[in-house]
Protein backbone atom coordinates (compact mmCIF):
# COMPACT_ATOMS: atom_id res chain seq x y z
CA UNK A 1 0.00 0.00 0.00
CA UNK A 2 1.59 3.30 -1.00
CA UNK A 3 2.45 5.78 1.83
CA UNK A 4 0.51 9.03 1.72
CA UNK A 5 2.67 11.87 0.43
CA UNK A 6 4.09 14.13 3.19
CA UNK A 7 3.62 17.80 2.53
CA UNK A 8 6.84 19.81 1.94
CA UNK A 9 6.34 22.34 4.83
CA UNK A 10 5.85 19.52 7.35
CA UNK A 11 9.02 17.78 6.15
CA UNK A 12 10.95 21.07 6.37
CA UNK A 13 9.87 21.68 9.99
CA UNK A 14 10.75 18.10 10.90
CA UNK A 15 14.26 18.60 9.50
CA UNK A 16 14.65 21.91 11.35
CA UNK A 17 13.48 20.32 14.60
CA UNK A 18 15.87 17.42 14.20
CA UNK A 19 18.73 19.81 13.47
CA UNK A 20 17.90 21.86 16.56
CA UNK A 21 17.88 18.77 18.77
CA UNK A 22 21.17 17.65 17.22
CA UNK A 23 22.80 21.02 17.94
CA UNK A 24 21.58 20.98 21.56
CA UNK A 25 22.77 17.40 21.97
CA UNK A 26 26.20 18.32 20.56
CA UNK A 27 26.50 21.30 22.93
CA UNK A 28 25.44 19.14 25.87
CA UNK A 29 27.89 16.41 24.91
CA UNK A 30 30.67 19.00 24.62
CA UNK A 31 29.89 20.33 28.09
CA UNK A 32 29.86 16.81 29.58
CA UNK A 33 33.22 16.04 27.94
CA UNK A 34 34.83 19.33 29.07
CA UNK A 35 33.55 18.79 32.63
CA UNK A 36 34.80 15.17 32.70
CA UNK A 37 38.19 15.83 31.09
CA UNK A 38 39.08 19.49 31.72
CA UNK A 39 41.94 20.86 29.69
CA UNK A 40 43.51 22.53 32.75
CA UNK A 41 45.01 25.98 32.59
CA UNK A 42 48.18 25.12 30.69
CA UNK A 43 47.09 26.71 27.39
CA UNK A 44 46.36 29.95 29.22
CA UNK A 45 49.03 29.83 31.93
CA UNK A 46 51.06 32.93 32.70
CA UNK A 47 54.84 33.02 32.21
CA UNK A 48 56.13 33.34 35.76
CA UNK A 49 59.48 35.15 36.14
CA UNK A 50 61.06 34.47 39.52
CA UNK A 51 63.36 36.71 41.52
CA UNK A 52 64.52 37.74 44.96
CA UNK A 53 64.90 41.03 46.82
CA UNK A 54 67.41 43.16 44.90
CA UNK A 55 67.02 41.25 41.61
CA UNK A 56 65.70 42.94 38.49
CA UNK A 57 62.92 40.78 37.09
CA UNK A 58 62.48 41.38 33.37
CA UNK A 59 58.89 41.23 32.16
CA UNK A 60 57.37 41.91 28.74
CA UNK A 61 56.01 45.24 29.93
CA UNK A 62 58.45 46.35 32.68
CA UNK A 63 61.55 45.67 34.75
CA UNK A 64 60.60 45.18 38.39
CA UNK A 65 62.71 44.98 41.53
CA UNK A 66 61.95 44.83 45.25
CA UNK A 67 64.30 47.26 47.01
CA UNK A 68 63.25 47.03 50.63
CA UNK A 69 60.83 45.17 52.92
CA UNK A 70 59.65 46.68 56.19
CA UNK A 71 56.72 46.42 58.59
CA UNK A 72 54.82 48.66 60.97
CA UNK A 73 51.65 48.96 62.99
CA UNK A 74 50.67 52.36 61.61
CA UNK A 75 50.96 54.34 58.40
CA UNK A 76 51.18 58.09 57.91
CA UNK A 77 49.12 59.10 54.89
CA UNK A 78 47.94 62.30 53.23
CA UNK A 79 44.48 61.68 54.69
CA UNK A 80 45.78 61.19 58.23
CA UNK A 81 46.84 57.67 59.00
CA UNK A 82 45.88 54.04 59.02
CA UNK A 83 46.21 51.54 61.83
CA UNK A 84 45.66 47.81 61.94
CA UNK A 85 45.01 45.02 64.39
CA UNK A 86 47.49 42.99 62.32
CA UNK A 87 50.62 44.34 60.71
CA UNK A 88 51.37 46.50 57.68
CA UNK A 89 53.95 44.84 55.46
CA UNK A 90 55.56 47.63 53.43
CA UNK A 91 57.34 46.72 50.19
CA UNK A 92 59.30 49.32 48.21
CA UNK A 93 59.42 48.57 44.48
CA UNK A 94 61.15 50.07 41.49
CA UNK A 95 59.28 49.65 38.22
CA UNK A 96 60.65 50.69 34.82
CA UNK A 97 57.90 50.48 32.22
CA UNK A 98 58.91 49.18 28.80
CA UNK A 99 57.50 50.55 25.48
CA UNK A 100 54.50 52.24 27.14
CA UNK A 101 53.46 53.52 30.59
CA UNK A 102 52.41 50.90 33.10
CA UNK A 103 49.07 52.12 34.39
CA UNK A 104 47.41 49.50 36.53
CA UNK A 105 49.44 46.47 37.52
CA UNK A 106 48.04 44.09 40.11
CA UNK A 107 50.31 43.65 43.10
CA UNK A 108 49.57 40.96 45.68
CA UNK A 109 51.35 39.10 48.45
CA UNK A 110 50.99 35.33 48.82
CA UNK A 111 51.83 33.64 52.12
CA UNK A 112 53.26 30.18 52.71
CA UNK A 113 49.81 28.61 52.92
CA UNK A 114 48.65 30.16 49.63
CA UNK A 115 46.52 32.96 51.04
CA UNK A 116 46.49 36.11 48.92
CA UNK A 117 46.66 39.68 50.27
CA UNK A 118 46.08 42.93 48.38
CA UNK A 119 46.81 46.59 49.11
CA UNK A 120 43.76 48.71 49.93
CA UNK A 121 43.40 52.40 49.18
CA UNK A 122 42.80 53.05 52.88
CA UNK A 123 46.56 52.64 53.34
CA UNK A 124 47.19 55.64 51.09
CA UNK A 125 48.45 53.33 48.34
CA UNK A 126 47.74 54.53 44.83
CA UNK A 127 49.64 53.30 41.79
CA UNK A 128 50.12 56.32 39.55
CA UNK A 129 51.08 55.32 35.99
CA UNK A 130 54.80 54.55 35.70
CA UNK A 131 56.23 56.55 32.81
CA UNK A 132 58.04 54.67 30.10
CA UNK A 133 61.74 54.22 30.75
CA UNK A 134 61.78 56.18 34.02
CA UNK A 135 62.53 54.32 37.25
CA UNK A 136 59.27 54.60 39.19
CA UNK A 137 59.48 54.11 42.95
CA UNK A 138 56.37 52.69 44.56
CA UNK A 139 55.61 51.95 48.21
CA UNK A 140 53.10 49.13 48.64
CA UNK A 141 51.56 48.64 52.12
CA UNK A 142 49.66 45.37 52.60
CA UNK A 143 47.65 44.57 55.73
CA UNK A 144 48.32 41.09 57.09
CA UNK A 145 47.76 39.05 60.26
CA UNK A 146 50.66 38.95 62.68
CA UNK A 147 52.74 35.81 62.86
CA UNK A 148 52.40 34.81 59.20
CA UNK A 149 55.28 36.68 57.54
CA UNK A 150 57.60 33.71 56.84
CA UNK A 151 57.86 32.78 53.14
CA UNK A 152 55.96 35.71 51.65
CA UNK A 153 56.09 36.16 47.87
CA UNK A 154 55.17 39.30 45.92
CA UNK A 155 53.40 38.86 42.59
CA UNK A 156 53.07 41.64 40.03
CA UNK A 157 50.95 41.29 36.92
CA UNK A 158 50.55 43.72 34.02
CA UNK A 159 46.88 44.40 34.66
CA UNK A 160 44.20 43.59 37.17
CA UNK A 161 42.00 41.37 35.04
CA UNK A 162 43.57 39.13 32.43
CA UNK A 163 47.10 37.72 32.60
CA UNK A 164 46.69 34.66 30.44
CA UNK A 165 49.84 33.93 28.44
CA UNK A 166 51.50 37.06 29.87
CA UNK A 167 54.51 37.66 32.10
CA UNK A 168 54.05 37.65 35.87
CA UNK A 169 56.75 38.56 38.40
CA UNK A 170 57.07 36.31 41.44
CA UNK A 171 59.57 37.75 43.92
CA UNK A 172 60.51 35.94 47.13
CA UNK A 173 60.68 38.56 49.87
CA UNK A 174 63.34 36.54 51.68
CA UNK A 175 61.58 36.48 55.06
CA UNK A 176 62.80 33.60 57.20
CA UNK A 177 61.86 33.10 60.84
CA UNK A 178 64.44 35.51 62.26
CA UNK A 179 63.58 38.17 59.67
CA UNK A 180 59.90 37.75 60.49
CA UNK A 181 60.58 38.23 64.20
CA UNK A 182 62.60 41.36 63.43
CA UNK A 183 59.88 42.77 61.18
CA UNK A 184 57.21 42.18 63.80
CA UNK A 185 59.21 44.30 66.26
CA UNK A 186 59.19 47.33 63.93
CA UNK A 187 56.76 49.96 65.21
CA UNK A 188 57.82 53.29 63.72
CA UNK A 189 55.09 54.79 61.53
CA UNK A 190 55.81 54.58 57.82
CA UNK A 191 54.98 57.38 55.44
CA UNK A 192 53.01 56.37 52.35
CA UNK A 193 52.82 58.54 49.27
CA UNK A 194 52.10 58.12 45.61
CA UNK A 195 54.71 56.47 43.45
CA UNK A 196 56.96 58.60 41.29
CA UNK A 197 60.49 59.21 40.03
CA UNK A 198 61.80 60.36 43.44
CA UNK A 199 63.64 57.57 45.28
CA UNK A 200 62.03 56.37 48.50
CA UNK A 201 63.82 56.82 51.80
CA UNK A 202 63.90 54.12 54.47
CA UNK A 203 60.45 52.85 55.30
CA UNK A 204 60.40 53.93 58.91
CA UNK A 205 61.50 57.53 58.59
CA UNK A 206 58.43 59.41 59.73
CA UNK A 207 56.87 59.18 63.12
Amino acid sequence: MPRPPTSRPVRLWAIRGALGIAVLAALGLGRVISDAWPTGDSPEASFVRHGQVGDTVRLRYADVSVDRVAATGSLATVAGGARTSGIWLVVDLTVVARQRPLAAPRITITDASGRIFSPDNRSGYLFTPAQTGIPWHVRVPVEMPQGDLVGLVLRLTGNTEDNRRDDVASIDLGIDRSAAERLEQEHAAVEVRQGGPDPLTAAGVSS
Binding site: A79, G80, G81, A82, R83, T84, S85, G86, R115, I116, F117, S118, D120, N121, R122, V142, E143, M144, P145, D148
Partner: peptide
Protein backbone atom coordinates in the same frame (compact mmCIF):
# COMPACT_ATOMS: atom_id res chain seq x y z
CA UNK B 1 37.55 51.45 60.03
CA UNK B 2 36.48 52.25 63.60
CA UNK B 3 40.03 52.98 64.76
CA UNK B 4 41.20 55.42 62.07
CA UNK B 5 38.00 56.31 60.12
CA UNK B 6 39.51 55.23 56.80
CA UNK B 7 37.19 54.04 54.03
CA UNK B 8 37.60 50.26 53.95
CA UNK B 9 37.31 48.72 50.48
CA UNK B 10 38.61 45.21 51.06
CA UNK B 11 39.37 42.85 53.91
CA UNK B 12 42.48 40.71 53.74
CA UNK B 13 42.46 37.14 55.12
CA UNK B 14 43.10 36.58 58.81
CA UNK B 15 43.00 40.24 59.89
CA UNK B 16 40.27 41.31 62.33
CA UNK B 17 38.81 44.63 61.24
CA UNK B 18 36.92 46.81 63.72
Amino acid sequence: DADDATDVRLLNPGVTYH
